[in-house]
């Protein structure tokens, strides 16, 4: 007796109960914290955690499970942001519609990229994605009539829910949590569901996958589209949180790197790796910038960059792998449980 859309659940529970528990617990904790926290700084921190966890989880669908490393997710992110912002300031349309358009654009871009990915092997595919962010940044900077150029787009400070401008910052947090929930759901489905196992197979070894009757291209496109669409949504939300958008904070390479860093350090093999990464890294980032902002700018960048390098070379499974090892040692069980590694095989 299975609930439609959740047929993957029993299987996933058997494979990786810890991950499912974590994936349920964290958003709930964030929600409760968001409801009770008095301090707006805390709410902001929670928002950042939820937002980036969602984006990194979305990225992982494509880059982790799907085996298609994307170094240009900022392109999707920025499309959502600019579409939302410009629809409000330019046409007076509700940004909800604008962001929907942004998502559609992001999905179209993703489909093109996915088609190109058929012909490109790993590092070349990564290179192509690498230029995506800068390409859009260049367009945004120079297409001044549309985007306001490097001056950016400022959003009004006051508005109503149709313009996605909320006085109560908590509401952004709730939306971000909703996004995170959707991202986690899709990640589960695209890892343990029918399409999921197909996606991982296609990402691992397309020839074998096709010999099993798996429509490799279709499955890959689904993964990429989901990843891009979610990221665009997040980008749109972020734009209306910050109320200012310029080519740098929309399409900048720093965004793409941040996403990859969170996902990889967290662990790309698990649905909750990126979530774990965000939960740990974002607060550290905030702490570092609060404590050292004036005196040591960019400290978190240095630390995270080096950490990424370290994790990739020394602990390829990321934090998830470490947690699993510790857990199995504590509980005296052998080996690493039934959850297997996917995605980023680094050796």
């Amino acid at each position: 007796m299975s609930v439609p859309g959740f047929d993957w659940l029993p299987f996933a529970w058997k494979q990786d109960p810890g991950a499912l528990a974590f994936a349920t617990a964290v958003p709930v904790i964030l929600l409760i914290a968001g409801l009770v926290a008095p301090d707006p700084q805390v709410v902001d921190l929670l928002f950042q955690v939820a937002l980036w966890a969602g984006i990194a989880t979305a990225w992982n669908i494509m880059g982790g499970f799907g085996g298609q490393l994307s170094l240009g997710h900022s392109a999707f992110y920025g499309l959502g942001g600019y579409a939302g912002a410009l629809s409000l300031t330019g046409i007076g349309l509700s940004p909800i519609l604008g962001i929907a358009i942004g998502v559609a654009l992001a999905v179209m871009l993703a489909l093109v990229v996915g088609l190109a990915g058929l012909r490109l092997r790993g590092p070349f595919f990564a290179m192509v994605t690498f230029v995506m962010g800068p390409a859009f940044q260049a367009i945004a900077t120079n297409w001044t009539r549309l985007t306001g150029g490097s001056g950016g787009v400022s959003l009004p400070l006051r508005g109503d829910w149709t313009s996605l401008i909320f006085g109560n910052r908590r509401i952004y947090l709730f939306i971000a949590l909703g996004l995170l929930a959707v991202a986690l759901y899709l990640a589960c489905r695209l890892r343990y569901g029918r399409t999921g196992i197909h996606l991982v197979a296609a990402g691992n070894d397309p020839e074998v996958a096709s010999s099993l009757g798996i429509p490799v291209l279709r499955v890959r496109l689904i993964g990429i589209a989901a990843s891009a669409g979610l990221t665009a949504l997040a980008g749109g939300l972020a734009a209306f949180y910050v109320l200012f958008l310029d080519p740098e904070n929309a399409f900048g390479a720093g965004i793409s790197i941040k996403i990859v860093t969170i996902a990889v350090i967290g662990g790309t093999s698990s649905i909750v790796g990126p979530l774990l990464g965000a939960v740990v890294l974002i607060p550290i980032e905030q702490f570092l910038s609060n404590t050292f902002a004036g005196r040591i700018p960019g400290l978190s960048g240095i630390i995270f960059g080096l950490l990424l390098m370290f994790v990739v070379l020394a602990v390829p499974g990321g934090m998830v792998r470490i947690v699993r090892r510790v857990w199995s040692r504590l509980s005296g069980r052998s080996a690493v449980g039934t959850a297997a590694r996917t995605g980023v095989e680094t050796s």
Binding site: S2, D7, W8, P10, F11, Q15, Y192, G193, R194, I197, H198, V200, A201, N204, D205, E207, V208, A209, L212, G213, I214, S269, T338, A340, R341, T342, G343, E345
Partner: peptide, 28 residues
């Protein structure tokens, strides 16, 4: 033998099991 390295052999076999309209439970 080309087993998908990231998956358990159960998941490997499941990758081929979804024909005939099976859902996850049936595939397993």
């Amino acid at each position: 033998p080309r087993l998908l390295p990231a998956l358990t052999i159960l998941e490997n076999v499941m990758a081929g099991a979804f024909r005939e309209g099976r859902d996850v439970a049936a595939a397993e």
